[in-house]
């Protein structure tokens, strides 16, 4: 590492100590006392100034120079009027599998991050982006687990980066983050969602009404009980993060399978009393690559960060399809 200007300042002032001792010696024992003592005072002041500026720059600012020191996550968020800075952070090495869009390959990168007990994986990634590697890309927005942007794979498990604690997921002081491999890749940790959105659209996820005029004029609310709402509420928490699709073993072998996210949304609208799509939704889902494509591995439900349980939705969809068939016969 090249020594910075400020470090030279600091070390120079330390190196000046023997000269100072020599001057003091001159002023006390040798003849030229007035000149030497004036010089030694000047030297003391200069040394102090050099030392303070140098030390401040070295200890406060040097860590922002690339690779100079690990980044202190969190400390930079503290502003003077809010109190004192953070102490006692723990060093975690964050291994990021970055997708390189030019070579279509993964680059492994490792960063040292100082983590406190509140540091999230997303927070750490954004600190890396801010202070050690501006080129790192991760998709994020709300940082409170509701927008669905930051689905990644942390230590092999599908997670939202913003609500995953870094220290809790650290194994022997290291955490590995990779993009979701079940989606087409875009850059670094960001996936391309075009295909995912198409799957969602394919189940016509719109509340269908026959009274179109009332739907937009909205004069009267549709009466619903709590029980009516509870039938579809668990499936309406979907934030479209794509983690379930990434986890689904069926989609990974048969890309034509519509996938857990879209099917859970088909069931969400089917179970909504207000929806008048009727049997069309069942008919649409009644295909080999629709509801029947699901092999009930349940990986989607354990991956879902919002507890949607798409696997259960698909089974309910299947049973409604069967019931409908029996009724028709």
């Amino acid at each position: 590492m090249r020594a910075s200007r400020y470090e030279i300042f600091m070390y120079a002032s330390i190196a000046a100590v023997p000269a100072l001792i020599f001057l003091i010696f001159l002023s006390t024992y040798a003849g030229a006392s007035a000149v030497a003592s004036a010089l030694s005072y000047l030297l003391i002041i200069a040394m102090a100034v050099f030392f303070v500026t140098g030390a401040k720059e070295v200890f406060v600012h040097a860590r922002y120079q690339e690779g100079a020191r690990p980044i202190l996550q969190g400390e930079r968020r503290v502003y003077p009027h809010m109190g004192r800075p953070i102490r006692g952070a723990e060093v975690v090495s964050l291994n990021v599998r970055r997708f390189n869009s030019e070579t279509n390959k993964f680059d492994e990168a490792s960063y040292k991050v100082n983590a406190t007990k509140h540091t999230t994986v997303l927070g750490a990634l954004l600190d890396i982006k801010s202070y050690s590697d501006n080129t790192l890309s991760v998709r994020c927005n709300c940082r409170m687990g509701i927008c669905g942007s930051c689905g990644v794979v942390v230590n092999g498990k599908q997670k939202l980066a913003c609500e995953t604690n870094l220290l809790e997921s650290s194994e022997n002081g290291s955490v590995t983050v990779s993009p979701m491999l079940g989606h087409p890749m875009l850059k670094d940790l960001a996936d391309n969602f075009d295909d995912f959105f198409k799957r969602h659209i394919s189940v016509s996820p719109t509340l269908e009404r026959k009274d179109v005029k009332e739907k937009y004029a909205a004069k009267q609310e549709y009466k619903m009980s709590k029980e009516d709402t509870d039938k579809f509420l668990p499936y309406s928490y979907c934030i479209m993060c794509g983690l379930c699709l990434d986890a689904c073993p069926v989609v990974n072998s048969n890309p034509n399978f519509v996938g857990p996210q879209a099917l859970s949304q088909a069931y969400r609208y089917h179970a909504d009393k207000r929806d008048q799509g009727g049997k069309r939704r069942l008919f649409d889902a009644d295909t080999a690559d629709g509801a029947w494509g699901c092999e009930f591995a349940g990986a989607c439900s354990s991956a879902c960060p919002k507890g949607v349980d798409p696997a259960a939705a698909i089974q309910l969809l299947k049973s409604d399809i069967m019931k409908n068939m029996l009724e028709e016969e």
């Binding site: 509340l207 009332e214 937009y216 909205a218 009980s225 709590k226």
Partner: peptide, 14 residues
């Protein structure tokens, strides 16, 4: 507007 959101699927508490 609240009723419109009811008509497009918001699960209002009842």
């Amino acid at each position: 507007e609240i009723k419109f959101f009811d008509h497009i699927g918001v699960p209002w508490n009842r």
